[in-house]
Design a protein around this nucleic acid. Structure first.
Lengths: 264, 264
DNA sequence: CGCCTATTTGACCTTTCTCAATAGATGTGG
DNA sequence: CCACATCTATTGAGAAAGGTCAAATAGGCG
């Protein structure tokens, strides 16, 4: 993951769900931010806090973690460009724990900024709404996965989703994604035990779908992974610019040019 | 469940998350609505639809159901006063199936109404935001339950949640809640097979926690059910009016006067 | 009464968990 | 650069939870 100006990943993310004008992007470019670095498993937000700014993730991964019910279940993960606590602009109380999954770089952006750009551009206001709705839809989709898929499918789906979301902001162009998190982290996302997570990963390796070494996951058979996961990116509520939906999806799901849409 | 004017349950629901003035309530009372009745498992909204009004549930239960991944996993259920598709005011596209769980009565209220009251009352606008956030938090909580609890706990938690949510809008004052849905419906919520759901319910009965007959669940040991479920209503993001948090919770969790807060 | 749907039961199988131990990697201070 | 401490990954074995299939039973309703 390479560094750009603070706003660029966020702008990419917004444009993945809504169309923006160049004026809008210019406004985003004026995003004020205090940049902080976190080490793996550092706590970025804690339950009960009152936030006056939002966290725009610049590099790495973060997740919302719930500690209440025994296991530290992870409810969502975030990639660069995401704003995990965007909802605090509506009600500032934080009700879960935001943690870094691996080293992470975060820009703290005052709520005021989001209010200002919403007031200045109808289009940006709408884009922010869509971003929030996309997170809602993602959460619902993950709930479906947890409720109705076995663990192998869950893990495969997770890796597909991370890959596609990274691509949306210009990362993971090859089929390699950074995996600075542990297998236990993956287990906490998928709702399975760490031991079982390990067996699942070995299974994915044995099936020739991916490798996981040196803190990097290399997907060696993307169409196979997509098929195993039953992955379709509809739920990400992506804008489909100038493209028929199927064509757009196949583009996202392609491994770099070799795979026809029929692979779905 | 008894019928009132269309807006009353909705007003109760809003007041469970935010304080409203009498003016605000008067505005709600002018809610225009087209009332429709649905039979069990009827489809109220279907994926791909574009909504121009919201569904305010008046009587019965509804749920969002996802058909994509094999089993028809249910992602959330709603009680009277809830507005399952409130988010369509931000983006009208419906992306799941809204179904009646048992006979249900729904008021269709134009988006325009919600926009109008938001424009007229800052307080109401905020209340609507909080309502949306509460749904988000509920979803996240349910995801934690699915990811980290075994099926007995899931079912117990579900019944606790339904009971408390009914109480918020003045229903289920005794420890009886209507259960017009099938055990298969419960299974689709808890992410388990219908056969297993049946065994779980029998388990709850055998433990003396509840009865389920004549389309009614009678909770015979509320503190026991709460303890088994590890249920705490924090995630519902309820307003705690004039009460210390613990006191408020114990009030909600009480069976009608006999149970001290220490039961938690 | 008879049909249809929902609930219940039993048997068997698969998935997943837990516990416990081993091996590998990473990082730190000497 | 090594030795040690620590965290992470891996493996095995036994047990628990949950799924599937099939059949029997019980309600509800025309």
């Amino acid at each position: 993951m390479q560094t750009g100006f603070a706003f660029t990943r966020f702008a990419d993310r917004l444009m993945s769900v809504a169309e923006l004008s160049t004026d809008d992007v210019d406004m985003l470019a004026r995003m004020p931010s205090a940049i902080r670095h976190f080490a793996s498993h550092d706590e970025i937000r804690r339950p009960g806090e009152y936030a006056s700014e939002c966290c725009v993730l610049l590099q790495g991964y973060t997740c919302w973690k719930d500690d209440d019910h025994s296991a530290g279940q992870i409810t969502s993960i975030h990639v660069p460009g995401d704003v995990p606590d965007l909802y605090t602009t509506l009600s500032p109380r934080v009700d879960a724990r935001l943690c870094a999954l691996g080293p992470a770089v975060v820009a703290f952006v005052p709520h005021r900024f989001f209010r200002d750009i919403s007031a200045m551009s109808e289009r940006l206001a709408h884009a922010l709404s869509l971003l929030a709705l996309a997170e809602f839809a993602s959460l619902r989709n993950w709930l479906v996965i947890l409720g109705s898929c076995e663990s192998l499918t869950r893990a495969a789906h997770l890796i597909c989703e991370i890959t596609v979301r990274l691509r949306l902001v210009g990362l993971a162009r090859d089929n390699r994604i950074p995996s600075p998190f542990t297998q236990s982290d993956l287990a906490a996302i998928c709702g399975i035990s760490p031991v079982h997570a390990n067996r699942i990963i070995q299974d994915l390796r044995r099936k020739g779908l991916l490798q996981w070494q040196a803190r990097t996951i290399t997907i060696t058979n993307w169409p196979g992974l997509v098929r195993l996961a039953g992955f379709t990116p509809d739920y990400l509520r992506l804008r489909q610019p100038h493209l028929h939906q199927e064509a757009h999806h196949s583009e996202l799901l392609m491994t770099g040019g070799e795979m026809p849409a029929s692979a779905l």
